[in-house]
Amino acid sequence: MERSTLQAINAARAARRAAVVVTDLSDGASQVFLEGASFPRKWDSLIVDALRSGRAGIAAVEGRSLFINVHLPPPRIVAIGAVHISQALAELAAVAGFDMTIIDPRTAFATAERFGAVELLAEWPEDILPSRPLDRYTAVAALTHDPKIDDYPIRAALEAGCFYVGALGSRKTHAARIERLGHAGMPAEAIGRIKAPIGLDIGAASPSEIAVAVLAEIIESLRRRDPGGQAGGTR
């Protein structure tokens, strides 16, 4: 493999862009293909399938033995709200192997003392997300209860095809949210993807228990995703 090929793979991974590497095992030639690009016709279905399934493997094309490797971005959780649930979720996410970022413009909540080492951004979501875009390997959990903070990232998450979009709040709160998002022009089908009330229904009561329910729901969305649709990486 050329060093430039290796650099292209690592650059794609750093940019959270899915990449497929095709290696011809008979002569050692390897090429990198990035998600969203166009692919050589003879390899097109192989590369598209690999990007969808996330599965690497051997394939034979035109009498040549190929190894197809897939590099999907690692799954990541973006929590909106530096709240009590997020404190527990940050600890659980690390154990389960997710990267995690917390965004909350309220500087009283977003303090290092409350969150330790987890990435914490004391910014409005609409200010910070354009420079740190969401993607389909990201789960977004909106946890502030405050439409001024939560609504924008929920819309952005649905538009980016995030594999999970959950929002805290009662059924009544969510009914009002559905109405607001509908008025803002969000299609009903997209709004229907929001998991609300958030978290698997395990009767969670305390903030830590709700964090367990939310993480379990995120894992369910990642592992039981439609193989032809949303994808997430593995570690």
Binding site: M1, R3, L6, L25, S30
Partner: peptide, 8 residues
């Protein structure tokens, strides 16, 4: 296991 040299 496929083993290759990184050339560059």
């Amino acid at each position: 296991v496929y083993v290759e040299r990184i050339d560059g």
